[in-house]
Amino acid sequence: MIHLEGICKTFRVARRQAGFSQAVKALFRREYALVHALRDVSFSVSKGEMVGYIGPNGAGKSSTIKIMSGILTPDRGKCQINGLTPWEQRRRHAASIGVVFGQRSQLWWDVPVADSFLLLRDIYRMDKDTFKKSQDELVTLFQLSEIIQTPARQLSLGQRMRCEIAASLLHRPEILFLDEPTIGLDAVSKIAVRNFIKQINKERGTTVILTTHDMQDIEALTERIILIGKGRILKDGSLADLKKHCSSFKTLAVEYSEGDPVSDAYIANLPGLSLQSAVAGRAVFTLDTQTLSVSSAVTALSQRAELTDLTITGATAEEMVVSLYKEYQI
């Protein structure tokens, strides 16, 4: 359904030092730096899949989304989505996708959301019945009935994001691109938005590709993740696989009343145990169980300090990603 092959994209960015004199100088002579946003990116996504696309800031996530949605033209490479090349057959392609940019609104700011929906109906050439059915469905699903008559500017961020996603789904797209859909939302709204995305994927069979920095999004939504760093795909696999890869790492939190395991030379030199954070009377370690077993780590710690509490947890997705970033040095 989605097929990318060898996509490359380079941006030419003007470079100059800070300061007024440099700004004046830049008026006359500019130095450009080539930024390789994407280098040889290839992957495929089949129908109905939910894919989490992750990577640090500036890794090329948004550029990939923009290429797949037909906004940017890549320098090289092939991209086939439903048999169309997005940047060449832009209009036909646009009719079958929905795009949500978490940081930008697509609703008309000063009019009720329902009015925006009506205009979208005409933009996407939907007939009355299809539109009505689709809108009613989304209003029930996203619980919009109370806010749909409110101007977009008066909505809270969480309410607006629900409306944004609904707006992108009105024309029943086969593919939904979500670029940081939960950015800036509170915990309750985040969970709500996640549930909606999940339901849409299940009920309509919509293919979903989402970029996010929030690992809970990934854990809650996607089975497959693609990791990108410095414009390259570093890992493409299921979340479970990645967890296995990282499961040798445990987090070890101790509270102590006597002794000082933090500044202890013996603990510090223990292979496989590294300090994450510490406050007076509490320390958190990362433990690599492949080098050091849980029991010997606990023994070592209890020899050096009087422990009052101890918790051991497996790696969260968050830590997994941090360790992946470290591993690939991005």
């Binding site: 923009k66 949605s69 037909g70 906004i71 832009r90 209009r91 036909r92 646009a94 009719a95 996708i97 795009v99 940019f101 940081q103 930008r104 697509q106 933009i123 996407y124 050439r125």
Partner: peptide
């Protein structure tokens, strides 16, 4: 500069 043109490009109109 505010990204509205991105939005324009993902809609199936001229």
């Amino acid at each position: 500069s505010n990204g509205e043109f991105d939005r324009i490009l993902v809609r199936p109109r001229n």
